Simulated assay, not measured.
Amino acid sequence: METLNYRFENGTHRLTAPPEVVGVVGSGNLEVLIEPAALDGACSIEITTAAVGFGPIWEAVMRDFHARWLLADTRISINDMGATPAVVSLRMDQAVQTMLGDAP
Rank of each mutant, 00 (worst) to 15 (best):
E35W: 04
V25G: 02
W69F: 13
F54N: 08
E35S: 15
I57N: 04
G82C: 00
A42N: 15
S77W: 06
G41C: 02
R63L: 12
V52R: 09
I78F: 01
G26C: 07
H66A: 09
P56N: 07
E35V: 11
P85N: 09
L30W: 03
V22L: 03
S27M: 13
G55R: 14
V52M: 05
G23N: 04
T84A: 04
F54P: 00
E31G: 01
P36G: 10
G55L: 12
V24Y: 11
A67K: 15
D80K: 03
D64C: 13
A83Y: 03
V21Q: 01
R63F: 04
R75K: 15
H66R: 12
N29E: 14
P18A: 05
E59F: 03
W69N: 11
P36A: 08
M81R: 15
D40R: 04
E46G: 12
I76Q: 07
L39H: 09
P36Q: 07
N29Y: 07
N79V: 07
M81P: 00
T48Y: 10
G23L: 09
P36D: 03
L33I: 08
G26F: 02
D40F: 01
N29C: 15
R75G: 09
G82N: 00
V61C: 14
C43V: 05
I78H: 01
G82T: 00
E46N: 11
E31I: 00
I76K: 06
V25Q: 04
P36E: 06
G82Q: 00
S44H: 09
C43T: 12
I76Y: 07
P56G: 05
G26M: 04
V24H: 12
A51M: 04
I57L: 12
I76T: 07
G23H: 09
